[in-house]
Amino acid sequence: MTKQDAAGMTRRQLYEAQQRKRSIRIAATSTALVIAAIVVLVPLTPGWEKVKRSFFNWDTLVDTFPKLLDAFLINIMIFAWSAPAIAVLGLLIALARDAKSPALFPLRIFGAAFTDVFRGVPVILTVYLIGFGIPGLGLPRPWNSPYIWGSLALILTYSAYVAEIFRSGIDSVHHSQRSAALSLGLSERQVMRDVVLPQAVRNVVPSQMNMLIALQKDVSLLSFIGPVEIFRQAGVFKSLLANFTPYVGAAIIFLIVTVPATRYADYLMARQMRERR
């Protein structure tokens, strides 16, 4: 027989409710303590007043924010044309590396070399080498634009990573799916296109979301070769106003975009884990 109290709860439910209340109390107390420590201790540091003025200046933030937003449109633009190119190139490289036909052997070698090289070099170096090197060939306008070659640097680097993720997705499709498809008379190509790839792509959506988020941030690296995107614009304001607040403003703008995207990627990841159990 189960004993119930006045609220109609069983013994265990009562115990669990108590435990829940207890952990909420502890979490609230420790959070309050940490915040209090920061609020009380940080202003006690000798440089706080100076840092407050140069990093958290409200007026500067309000004045520069609209211009920063404008500059962020350039980030979005570069992101918008790079991302699809990365998806396509990444998939092609993944397929090239899995190619079985001997005629495609050079493609396999190329795919492997490509991923090794572009995963092995810091992004900023690739941006420099391609972004300065190729326009240095003396190409006529508009082919000397740092937008083109900077974007290409990002596309090449990210395609290498994205290709590896696609490949892990292809490997994650159980070989019994291949057997079943082959047993129906499908060709290797049809098996890949109709059976393996659709499942592989679905399996790696959360990982690829994370790559998109990283790309969104790395677009700022192009500032080093010319384009006045948000990071560069913040730098211009810093020099003009002798104040670092525009950098904080830029960080806020990035967070407005990346935090929801990160949350969404995590949600997709968690859902996938649940589905696989």
């Binding site: 019994s176 799916q177 057997s179 079943a180 498809a181 047993s183 129906l184 109709d194 059976v195 659709p198 499942q199 679905r202």
Partner: peptide, 12 residues
């Protein structure tokens, strides 16, 4: 035709 122990239907 062949049928497998684990069905192997295409889940998508």
């Amino acid at each position: 035709g062949m049928v497998f122990q684990s069905y192997n239907l295409f889940p998508h």
